[in-house]
Amino acid sequence: MTATQPKILEFGDRLLNSHEYSSKKTIDLFPSSETYFAQLKRTKFVPVLEEEMNTDKFVEFFIEKWNPRKSAVIVVNTIKRSIEVYYALKSELKGRGIDTPVYYLSTNIIPKKRMSVIQEVDKLLRANKSVILVSTQTIEAGVDLDFDMAFRDFAPLDSLVQTAGRVNRNSQKGEHLPVYIVKLAHDSDYIYHLFNRKLTMELLREYKEIYEWQYNKIIDRYYDKILSLGIPQESKNIWNEGILKLDFNKISEFRLIEDLSFICDVYVEKDENATILANEYENIILERGDYAHYNSFERKALLRNITAKVNDYIIQVKERKVESNLLQNFEIRNGVKSSLRWISPKDVSKLYDEETGFKFV
C-alpha cells in the first residue's frame, strides 16, 4: 500500500476549502503499519542517475547487472523507447548466444495480445524460468507478475514503488532484490510533472540504496512536500467548475500525465476473428439480417456485448501518428459512423507488427 498513501484524503479536504474538513486528520486503519513495514525485505532501490543513458548504453548496463538465470522486467516511459530497447536487447542477446525469451508489453499492442503476453510470461515465471519483459507503465496497473529484478526509467516516486511491486512479490526469492533506477535521456520530461520529477530526484540522491523498509518513510516525505505546496489552481478549477457545476469540458482537461496529445482509438482487423466481430458490430448498428427483428433494448444489450469483444482489437494512438500514417476512418469499411480509425486486413502487415504493435512509418 506504499504507493497509494491516504494523504490523498488530505488533498481532498484542502480542495473542499471547508473549515469542517480542513481540521480533520487521516486515520490509519492499520496502527501497527510501522512494525509491518520494518520487516519488509523483498526489494531495494538502486539509483544509477549520475549520467543519462541512450538505448545502447542502457542495454550494456542491463547485461552487466542481469543474471542470465534470473527473470527481469524493464519499465520505460515512452512507447518509442520501449520498442527500441526491445529490439536492441533481443539483438544483443542473440549476438551473445543467449536464448532467454524477451517479451514486449505496451498499449501499442492490442489488448488480446497484451493478455497473451502476460499469461505466457506468468507461466515462465511460475516455472522459475529466465524471462525478460520490456514494458511501458502498463505493467504498473494491476498486473500480477513476480520477477527477480527490475530496471526502471526515472519516474516520480509512486511509480517507482509500483514497479518494485512486480519484484519478489511473495518474498520467496530472497532479500533485497534490486530495482535499478536509470535515466533514459529526457523521456521522463515528456510524461511527468516537473515538480514530481525534481522532488523524486532530490530524495533519491540522498541514498546509494533504499531498502523496502525505508519506502514508507521516503514516500511519506514525498507526499508531505507535495502537500505543503497547497492545491494547484488547475485542480481547483476542475473541482469548482467541472465537478460542482457539471462542466464536462472542464473535467475532460484532467490529465494524469503532461502529454496532452489527442489519442485516437484504432481498430486493428488483424485476423479472421477481428473481421467477424467487426461485421457483427456493423450488423447490429445497421439492423441488418437477424438483428432487424430485435427491439431497441435487445440491440443495445447485444451492442454492449459485442463492443467489449471489439475492444480486444483496439489500440490507442496519438492523433499526429494517425494522421502521418494516413489511417482510414472505420466508416470507410461499410458506412457505419464511428469515431474509430481502422487498419484494414490488407494494411495490417504495413502498419502493425505482431510483436510491438503499431508501426510509426
Score class of each variant (00 low, 15 high):
T136K: 04
D122K: 13
D158Q: 14
K129H: 06
F151M: 12
L124E: 00
V134M: 15
A141R: 01
S116R: 10
L133G: 01
S116I: 06
A164C: 04
R152F: 10
Q119E: 15
V167N: 11
T138M: 13
A127V: 01
G165N: 12
S135A: 14
S159Y: 03
K129T: 01
F147A: 12
A141Y: 00
D153I: 04
M149P: 02
Q137W: 00
I118K: 05
T138D: 03
T138Q: 08
R166T: 10
S116T: 05
E120R: 01
I118H: 05
S135G: 06
L157S: 06
Q162A: 10
E140N: 02
A155K: 02
V131N: 05
D144M: 05
A127T: 00
R152V: 04
A164R: 03
V161H: 05
V121I: 04
D146Q: 13
L133N: 04
K123S: 13
A150G: 14
P156G: 14
R126S: 00
D148K: 08
I132T: 08
Q137H: 03
L133W: 06
V134N: 10
E120T: 01
K123C: 08
G165A: 13
K123W: 09
D122F: 06
S159V: 04
V134P: 12
Q162K: 11
M115L: 11
N128S: 06
V131A: 09
T136I: 12
E140K: 04
M149A: 13
R114Q: 10
G165T: 10
V121S: 02
Q119I: 03
K129M: 04
A141N: 03
S159A: 14
F151N: 15
Q137Y: 00
D146M: 11
L160Q: 09
T136M: 08
L160P: 02
S135I: 01
R152Y: 11
A164Y: 09
V121T: 09
V161N: 10
A127P: 00
S159F: 02
M149N: 10
A127K: 12
V117W: 07
